[in-house]
Design a protein around this nucleic acid. Structure first.
Ligand SMILES: [Mn+2]
Ligand SMILES: [Mn+2]
Ligand SMILES: [Zn+2]
Ligand SMILES: [Zn+2]
Lengths: 151, 151
DNA sequence: TTTTTAAACTAGAATAATTCTAATCTATTG
DNA sequence: CAATAGATTAGAATTATTCTAGTTTAAAAA
């Protein structure tokens, strides 16, 4: 996988994933140190996508040694969401999750373990929904199947 | 519609909706002044059900002249939910809504107006969902169709 | 009835998630 | 390199919700 060299401030030079860099550039977002670190955690080496909370990602990025504030984590998650790189999603009251899978899909939520699995939208069919009202359009359909241990 | 007389503390006597009283009794919840006031707002005269936030219900109950604390509103909403009289639901990050319709149904959410409409579950059919894993059961399926003004 | 008691209620403090502010820093452009 | 718009940050603020611990009350017992 090709790496590109990006000149940072001073003499710091870091190798950066080309796809990540392209993603940010296309979104009109400057490839800053913080965004690159967060994008790497979000998008690199997760072929099946991931679901992450702001607090959890903050923990990861700090553990990875990058200096990023919590405010920047929130800013970045919302910017990535606005740019279509992420989707925001709520399965439990209280916290948002950010989903790196921005394709049309739904969720299987295991209430006991907290596990969340994707279900491709093109594998399922929803019949009988009321007609979309005149002047409105469907922004998104969210299906969450909540599972618990049997009886 | 029949009213029952309930003896309150001291010499206070209030007329109370019989169905509301029965609902609380069946749930094993004492019909306190506060619960009766909240139940009246939630269940009386809303044939099509309602979706309400804790803060909004708190405003209503105070406007109705009842002295009820916000803590009691939260306690009561959660007790009613545990008793199956309400369902908790999140359409937007940040706040829970409590739904007086506890039948199997889904939602149409108008992002611009904040309006939320029920869609009976038996009018819709969802095909292609993965088989429920062994040892698990479906606790609930939530479908939220998010609508916005066209183009 | 009155008494007793567990349950319920409450104000206010505490917590959790998120957003805001205003000062500092930096990626980009000229 | 210098200028600058955009980005980052610490910490304060806000919002939704929960907790604490003292008070009240509905229901049961006497
Ligand atoms: Mn958000
Ligand atoms: Mn809740
Ligand atoms: Zn997903
Ligand atoms: Zn509903």
């Amino acid at each position: 996988m090709a790496k590109h060299v990006v000149s940072g401030s001073k003499r710091t030079v870091r190798a950066v994933n080309a796809a990540t860099l392209a993603r940010l550039r296309e979104a009109g977002l400057r490839p800053t140190r913080q965004r690159l670190a967060l994008a790497a955690l979000l998008f690199d080496g997760h072929p099946h996508g991931r679901h992450v909370s702001a607090e959890a990602l903050f923990g990861e990025v700090r553990a990875a040694g990058a200096k990023v504030s919590l405010a920047t984590v929130y800013n970045t998650l919302h910017q990535f969401t606005a740019a279509g790189l992420l989707r925001e999603l709520v399965v439990d009251p209280g916290t948002s999750l950010f989903d790196t899978n921005v394709g049309d899909h739904h969720h299987l939520y295991f209430e006991d373990s907290g596990d969340l699995r994707d279900v491709d939208a093109d594998r399922i069919e929803i019949k009988g929904l009321p007609a979309t009202p005149k002047g409105a359009e469907v922004a998104r359909v969210d299906v969450i199947v909540r599972l618990r241990r049997r009886s």
